[in-house]
């Protein structure tokens, strides 16, 4: 259990900056999720922390140690790869016990077996120890990979999209379990994903990345409620935030679940009225998505989405002008050129 500090980390591949100067502080015992679209440098950032990539610039420290120049084996980390990277020629027990065979870690055979068993028990796969990886299902492989990662009691656990190979049903279950292990072990964890549901559900804090740069860091709810720029606003949420130009300099944004029929707005709240035509309705069971177009200040139409929870049963007629509104405190304002968030006072 240690904190991790990154200072001005830069990693280039040829002319491309995969990580373009990242400062990050990860608290001891924290579950930090790095979220971003594919190619944003999140995996490279993790591999840099692991020591599998050498940064061109910057400094990385784990606990009180500067590990920038150290090879992976001396960093006190463990990693779960996206493909799990289980050793196909070893049994499950061999896989889990492999890190203990590294020089001087655990020379005593009986103790090694004991620790392998405990790690396997932790993820409930003690009945699979004699199997080979190819005889396991996706979920079982993932557990073996986690057991292998925690058996050597690392200071920092790195997880590279470990849930992306599981089917959707198993994923929700695995999320819950993963969070459970992490709480039990209290291990500093960095989790890389492109899936915002995983990020929102798992992270104590989320780091949103784009083009090798950190866009915003904070607790999931804070990032969702106060996105720092238009990228974060539209990337988080499904669908993302609606954006509408209100002048050459300013655009305003509102989340689909806040664009509601006038009758559904909180009574007495000041609101911004929107008249629009709904052209398509998607019923998702738990809620309804309404698609339509809103005119911006120049009169150009922009695709807009509203999300109504299932307890709002009001009939929405298609291709008819409907009166909707957004409560004032749910409106966000962004600079058009930079995409950065504007404080409400400035916008008004």
């Amino acid at each position: 259990m240690s904190e991790v500090n990154l200072k001005g980390v830069v990693k280039r591949f040829g002319d491309v900056q995969a990580v373009a100067g990242v400062d990050l502080h990860i608290n001891s015992g924290e579950f930090l999720v790095v979220l971003g679209p594919s190619g944003c440098g999140k995996t490279t950032l993790m591999r840099t922390i692991a020591g599998l990539e050498k940064p061109e610039e910057g400094q990385i420290s784990i606990g009180a140690r500067d590990v920038t120049a150290l090879p992976p084996r001396k960093r006190g980390i463990a990693m779960v790869f996206q493909s799990y990277a289980l050793y196909p020629h070893m049994s499950v027990a061999g896989n889990i016990g492999f890190p203990l065979k590294a020089q001087g870690r655990c020379p005593d055979r009986a103790e090694r077996e004991q620790r392998v068993y405990q790690a396997a028990q932790m993820v409930s796969i003690e009945h699979l120890l004699d199997r080979r990886p190819r005889q396991l299902s996706g979920g079982e492989r993932q557990r073996v990979a986690i057991a292998r990662a925690i058996v050597s009691q690392p200071e920092v656990l790195l997880l590279d999209e470990p849930l992306s190979n599981l089917d959707a049903k198993l994923r929700a279950y695995a999320r819950d379990e993963l969070k459970g292990f992490q709480r039990k072990l209290g291990i500093t964890t960095v989790f890389v994903t492109h899936d915002q549901i995983e990020a929102m559900g798992l992270g104590d804090r989320i780091v949103v990345m784009r083009d090798g740069l950190v866009q915003q860091v904070g607790p999931p709810q804070a990032i969702y409620d106060r996105p720092q720029n238009t990228f974060v606003a539209t990337f988080l949420g499904s669908p993302g935030m609606n954006l509408q130009l209100v002048s050459d300099q300013v655009q305003r944004g509102f989340r689909p679940e806040h664009l509601l029929p006038l009758g559904e707005l909180p009574p007495g709240a000041a609101h911004e009225p929107f008249s629009w035509r709904v052209t398509r309705v998607e019923n998702l069971g738990s809620d309804r998505l309404l698609y339509g177009h809103l005119a911006d200040f120049r009169g150009e139409m922009q695709l807009t989405v509203s999300r109504l929870p299932s307890n709002v049963t009001i009939e929405i007629p298609l291709d008819t002008v409907c009166e909707f509104g957004v409560a004032h405190d749910q409106l966000h304002f962004f600079d058009v050129a930079s995409g950065e968030r504007l404080e409400e006072g400035v916008a008004a």
Partner: peptide, 18 residues
């Protein structure tokens, strides 16, 4: 042989040679 297997071994505490 996927390079990730080698990387996993590096992370698991071994040198590149090992």
């Amino acid at each position: 042989i996927p390079p990730e297997l080698e990387e996993a071994a590096l992370v698991d505490g071994f040198t590149r040679y090992e």
